[in-house]
Design a protein around this nucleic acid. Structure first.
Lengths: 219, 219
DNA sequence: GTGTATATCTCGGGG
DNA sequence: CCCCGAGGTATACAC
């Protein structure tokens, strides 16, 4: 990883046009070739960047980065303050926990928390416009499509509504009702859901973890 | 801006739990206090981070960053390879061009590219669920709601459909039809639009720029 | 502050 | 390769 501190100005010309006036910034060049220009603030997002793959060419104080899509980043170095290079080696990467996929797993293992007598038919039930997270049958053996979200918002209700449109065209399933399951359900999602006949259920992730059968963290 | 190269392991515990095994990485600490841990690849996004505002406390080799929401980032330094600090000063920031706002401006100035005889009623026409980008009247003096997007996708059709639901409840406007205007219209958006009676129009941004009346770049 | 829409979104998975 | 969906989305802007 090459780290450059320099007084520079930067132009990006690609999906949009953007220009950075002259100032002192960090230019980070990673081993895969991606370039990022950082100011001393503004969260982790760089002011300007160019992802790999790309080609960096240096002509004196003007550095040009172009990618196969024809996007161009032009960095003009007015004053080079520091230029260092480090060998970082391969990174083992990030282990994540708590995302939607895990919530879906837990609900698949314990569908009864979605409603009394719920049984799982299958996960990722396919439709023409994409897979439904869970397909269940309720206590009365009626089909229920379940959309799992970390946060239940309007978009989740719309998505489930589109799935129901297709599922209800299948005579072996219809009528299919919908349940949006989320750790937090926004009032707007609940309102739109009520309007569309979609039930919104808040799920206690930690409690659900506790009742999981093949629990790994017993201690 | 403080730049640290170190062999470290990192734990994040907050909205989710994530763990980075021991490896050599860049730790970037900006003037506003935000912390980012970068590997030598993977675009500009750090492996782990904590945005400002937060509080960094150092106890030997264990660095802890906590924010007001109770999220915690724990960095354990196994080997410090480099630790430098630079004064970057204030950044003048980025000038952007080509985003949706500009496209909306241009269309407001030249509504006829949306359809023959189109006239602008107003921009950001308010409804109970948010403002419609443009409200126009067509050659037959019928109301037309226009949603402007850089890329026309399903979500844009859904959004416009919600607006139309509300606009058509206003007897002084109804019937209102909808037009989705975008630089590129995805086939799925066009299909859903056809189903909902919403027309999708592709806009040539560069051409539209050329016909803008108060053009600044005449040379 | 909450809610809504955007982003050069980024990133990963499936066809 | 594109399409689609999720994100610790982040960020700006209106109410």
């Amino acid at each position: 990883m090459r780290l450059i501190i320099a007084r520079c100005s930067v132009d990006y010309d690609g999906r949009l046009a953007a220009r950075l006036p002259e100032a002192v910034r960090l230019i980070m060049i990673k081993a895969d070739g991606c370039v990022a220009v950082h100011a001393d603030g503004g969260a982790y997002k760089p002011l300007n960047w160019m992802n790999a793959p790309n080609r960096l060419s240096v002509q004196g104080e003007v550095w040009t980065v172009v990618n196969p899509a024809g996007e161009k980043l032009t960095i003009t170095i007015h004053e080079l303050i520091s230029d260092t290079d480090y060998e970082l080696g391969h990174d083992p990467g990030l282990d994540k926990d708590g995302v939607e996929a895990h919530l879906q797993e837990l609900l698949a293992a314990s569908p009864e928390v979605l409603g009394a007598g719920f049984r799982l038919v299958r996960r990722e039930y396919p439709t023409d416009i994409g897979p439904v997270d869970l397909l269940c049958r309720d206590a009365a053996d009626k089909a229920v499509a379940v959309e799992v979200k970390r946060r239940g918002e309007i978009a989740g209700v719309e998505q489930l509504d589109r799935y129901l449109l297709f599922l209800n065209q299948d005579q072996t399933l219809a009528p299919v009702r919908g349940v949006l399951a989320a750790q937090i359900v926004r009032p707007q999602a609940r309102a739109l859901g009520a309007n569309r006949g979609i039930e919104c259920v808040e799920i206690d992730y930690d409690a659900l973890r506790g009742i999981e059968p093949d629990q790994t963290k017993l201690f």
